[in-house]
Amino acid sequence: MRNVIVPQIKSSSLVGQLKSLYETLKDAKPNEDLNFDLNQLSFACPLLILPLCSYLNTTKSEFVISKDSKIKSYLDVINFPKGITSVSSFHQKIQKDKNYIPISVLTREGVVGRERLESLFATMVYKAIDVSGIEGVSNAIYYPIGELITNIFEHSKENQGFIFGQFYPKKEWLDICIVDRGRGLAAAYQQEKNLNLSDGDAIAEVMKGNSTKPDKERGYGVRTSKRVVCEALGGEFTIISGSSALVVSKDKEKLVSLPNFHWQGVIIAYKIPKPKHPIDIFPYLE
């Protein structure tokens, strides 16, 4: 099994996190079993940790981390890499470690259990940012989580999805990441609409609202979530599939090629500042 040293994260910005993920997984063959060495990391962030968690859960890959590592206790607290799969386990975890939201693994089977776990996750994220009383903030937190998780079970053909969030009280930033290891965007368009698109073009189709579903009213979930994150909340947003990523910050959008990198499935991550004012998401839902 090939050893991969996960490099130190140079910046906690979304681009910085994306670059760390890229450096970690570039040159990996599809579903290659890897041994991740996490000892160089002095801090962890969702866009790096959650894809690694899903990779470890869906391949025979392994990881090593020394007891003296700066992030060992953090990874234990968030239940890396297995994650939490039930509401009861989630409750137990957050009673023990009140300041951290554990990684949650959502499964297609047992729909109600999944919905309750997703609901609990979203509620915990909202509580973590501690803005109760500011009108509309809960809607802005809940909306992208709901729409983006829906997409996993509507489009990926995969039976599980992963979600993780971390609020940084001193920086007043919230990071959320949502990951699947399904067929990916280009394969979805190929299989559902017989369109042969590059990974970058498939991301573009998603952002134009062209759904793989025949219903004309579908295809708004990712685009409107991006608008809520970037326009309503003033945050940054990225979507990664295959060998491409879209990175968005307010009105700037960059379609980024990721040479020698291929993510099987879809990764979505966003970063938002702690809201200080009332937010109305509805104008962004189109």
């Binding site: 729909v111 809940y142 989580i145 829906t150």
Partner: peptide, 10 residues
């Protein structure tokens, strides 16, 4: 279902 209804399939 749940206090937050997020998923279409649910």
């Amino acid at each position: 279902l749940a206090p937050i209804v997020g998923s279409r399939d649910v």
